[in-house]
């Protein structure tokens, strides 16, 4: 028999015992994550003419623009050693997972406002279902990447397998930010706007569509996103990366941030329904 006791600030009284509760509640709700993901996916493509093709059109146009600007000599993009469109597509795929994940996740709570106010379920499933959607887009784009590899006759080194492992820290980082931003957005709706705005400009300041060379290398070193984009891409394209230790440290940081964000979310989620 399940016994629920609700009282003010109950979550704090659990102390460190909160972790098993958090994990088990999420585990119980795993089917709901899948259901909500399928719901969002099928609802999104239901009244769309091009459907999944949109996942291809956006990077195609973005990279096409950069190729044009590069050819016209307006942008001086450093040497990438591999065909530029492949390089740019990898970068953009990773970035779009990050930016798409946090912007979808950020809106996940307010879009389900009605549901949150009326049904009891772990609220993080909404954010996770949004992230699953961003991850699904990433998987689709892997197909596009494979096609581009074939087109250029590029054979990735065997370490490309490691690149998939190197995605894990990016997933943790994106999840952490999505959880925190969704809470902030539940109270202040401006947050979603800020996220859109910031991710757009942040992309240009991150070596997504160009290699991190030139005079402003210090800028890239300061940008935490550089390493999360660069390392998986380097592993895929060149089979090695410049700073494996730095990446491990950053990964650990991302994981700790994820744990903190989840904990914060759990502490605060009971206060969401009355604020939506």
């Amino acid at each position: 028999m399940r016994i629920n006791v609700y009282e003010p600030n109950k979550v704090f009284k659990l102390g460190l015992n909160v972790w098993p509760v958090m994990v088990s509640e999420l585990w119980e709700a795993r089917e709901l994550v899948v259901r909500l993901f399928i719901r969002n996916l099928s609802a999104r493509h239901k009244q769309s003419l091009l459907g999944i093709a949109w996942s291809f059109i956006v990077p195609f146009v973005a990279i096409g623009t950069f190729v044009l600007l590069k050819r016209a000599g307006i942008l001086a993009i450093g040497d990438t050693n591999v065909p530029y469109p492949l390089f740019a597509l990898l970068g953009l795929t990773l970035w779009q997972f990050f930016a798409g994940g946090i912007s979808l996740g950020c809106n996940a709570l307010i879009e389900a406002g009605d549901m949150i106010a009326k049904v009891k379920f772990p609220r993080e499933v909404l954010v996770l279902a949004s992230l699953a959607q961003a991850f699904f887009e990433l998987l689709i784009k892997l197909g596009l990447i494979a096609a581009v590899c074939v087109y250029y006759g590029f054979l990735p080194p065997w370490t490309a397998v490691l690149a998939i492992m190197a995605l894990v820290p990016l997933v943790f980082l994106t999840t952490a930010l999505a959880l925190l931003l969704s809470l902030a957005n539940a109270v202040f709706r401006d947050v979603a706007q800020v996220v859109m705005f910031v991710t757009t400009f942040w992309m240009f300041l991150t070596p997504v569509l160009y290699p991190p060379s030139g005079k402003s290398a210090w800028l890239f070193a300061l940008n935490p996103m550089t390493i999360f984009i660069q390392v998986p891409r380097d592993l895929f394209l060149y089979g090695k990366t410049a700073d494996p230790l730095g990446f491990m440290a950053a990964s650990l940081g991302a994981f700790i941030l994820f744990l903190c964000a989840w904990r914060v979310f759990y502490l605060v989620e009971t206060k969401i329904p009355e604020r939506l």
């Binding site: 399940r2 629920n4 009282e7 003010p8 109950k10 106010a117």
Partner: peptide, 12 residues
């Protein structure tokens, strides 16, 4: 859905 601000609620 709403946590009480005062008192306690228990459901079995």
């Amino acid at each position: 859905i709403f946590m009480p601000d005062d008192g306690q609620i228990e459901t079995r």
